Deep mutational scan, measured.
Amino acid sequence: GIPATNLSRVAGLEKQLAIELKVKQGAENMIQTYSNGSTKDRKLLLTAQQMLQDSKTKIDIIRMQLRRALQ
């Protein structure tokens, strides 16, 4: 079985993952909103794209940590 310490770690990672998935969803929504907007929305679009990139990276890292914890 999986050690108890790993189980609480997994629960924490799953919570983090859920949050990051919401951030990713929000960033994707912002990108959709701003991509057909005016030029003043360009900065917001770039910010949203950066957020999305960061979020995807975090999600990958969390998933990797989850896999390790579940081994």
Results as ranks from 00 to 15, higher is better:
residue 1 G to E: 09
residue 1 G to W: 10
residue 1 G to L: 08
residue 1 G to F: 10
residue 1 G to H: 12
residue 2 I to G: 12
residue 3 P to T: 06
residue 4 A to H: 06
residue 5 T to W: 06
residue 6 N to L: 07
residue 6 N to W: 02
residue 7 L to C: 15
residue 7 L to I: 09
residue 9 R to W: 12
residue 9 R to K: 11
residue 9 R to H: 11
residue 9 R to T: 13
residue 9 R to I: 14
residue 10 V to T: 04
residue 11 A to W: 05
residue 11 A to S: 07
residue 13 L to Y: 03
residue 14 E to T: 12
residue 14 E to Y: 15
residue 15 K to F: 07
residue 15 K to Y: 07
residue 16 Q to W: 06
residue 16 Q to R: 10
residue 16 Q to G: 02
residue 17 L to H: 01
residue 17 L to Y: 02
residue 17 L to P: 00
residue 18 A to L: 09
residue 18 A to T: 05
residue 18 A to R: 08
residue 19 I to V: 06
residue 19 I to N: 08
residue 19 I to Q: 11
residue 19 I to T: 08
residue 20 E to Q: 14
residue 20 E to Y: 12
residue 20 E to H: 07
residue 20 E to T: 04
residue 21 L to A: 02
residue 21 L to P: 00
residue 21 L to D: 01
residue 21 L to E: 05
residue 22 K to Q: 07
residue 22 K to L: 12
residue 22 K to S: 06
residue 23 V to N: 12
residue 23 V to I: 12
residue 24 K to E: 02
residue 24 K to F: 08
residue 24 K to M: 12
residue 25 Q to T: 06
residue 25 Q to L: 08
residue 25 Q to M: 08
residue 26 G to Y: 14
residue 27 A to M: 07
residue 28 E to K: 04
residue 28 E to P: 00
residue 28 E to Q: 07
residue 28 E to W: 06
residue 29 N to Y: 11
residue 31 I to E: 02
residue 31 I to N: 01
residue 32 Q to V: 10
residue 33 T to L: 15
residue 33 T to Q: 15
residue 34 Y to E: 02
residue 34 Y to I: 11
residue 34 Y to L: 15
residue 35 S to A: 09
residue 36 N to C: 15
residue 36 N to A: 07
residue 37 G to I: 05
residue 37 G to Q: 06
residue 37 G to D: 11
residue 38 S to D: 13
residue 39 T to V: 09
residue 39 T to R: 06
residue 40 K to Y: 12
residue 41 D to T: 03
residue 41 D to N: 06
residue 41 D to A: 03
residue 43 K to E: 13
residue 43 K to N: 09
residue 43 K to S: 11
residue 43 K to F: 10
residue 43 K to T: 11
residue 44 L to S: 04
residue 44 L to K: 11
residue 45 L to T: 02
residue 46 L to R: 10
residue 47 T to Q: 15
residue 48 A to H: 03
residue 48 A to E: 01
residue 48 A to Y: 09
residue 48 A to Q: 01
residue 48 A to V: 04
residue 49 Q to N: 05
residue 49 Q to P: 00
residue 50 Q to N: 06
residue 50 Q to A: 10
residue 52 L to P: 00
residue 52 L to I: 02
residue 52 L to R: 02
residue 52 L to S: 01
residue 53 Q to E: 13
residue 53 Q to F: 07
residue 54 D to W: 04
residue 55 S to N: 01
residue 55 S to R: 01
residue 55 S to K: 01
residue 57 T to R: 15
residue 57 T to V: 10
residue 57 T to I: 14
residue 58 K to P: 01
residue 59 I to H: 00
residue 59 I to D: 00
residue 59 I to M: 02
residue 59 I to E: 01
residue 60 D to Y: 14
residue 62 I to H: 00
residue 62 I to L: 11
residue 62 I to S: 00
residue 63 R to D: 03
residue 63 R to C: 14
residue 63 R to K: 08
residue 64 M to H: 08
residue 64 M to P: 12
residue 64 M to L: 12
residue 65 Q to E: 12
residue 65 Q to N: 05
residue 65 Q to Y: 05
residue 66 L to Q: 01
residue 66 L to Y: 01
residue 66 L to F: 01
residue 67 R to F: 11
residue 67 R to V: 10
residue 68 R to G: 07
residue 68 R to W: 10
residue 68 R to M: 13
residue 69 A to R: 02
residue 70 L to Q: 06
residue 70 L to N: 04
residue 70 L to P: 02
residue 71 Q to L: 11
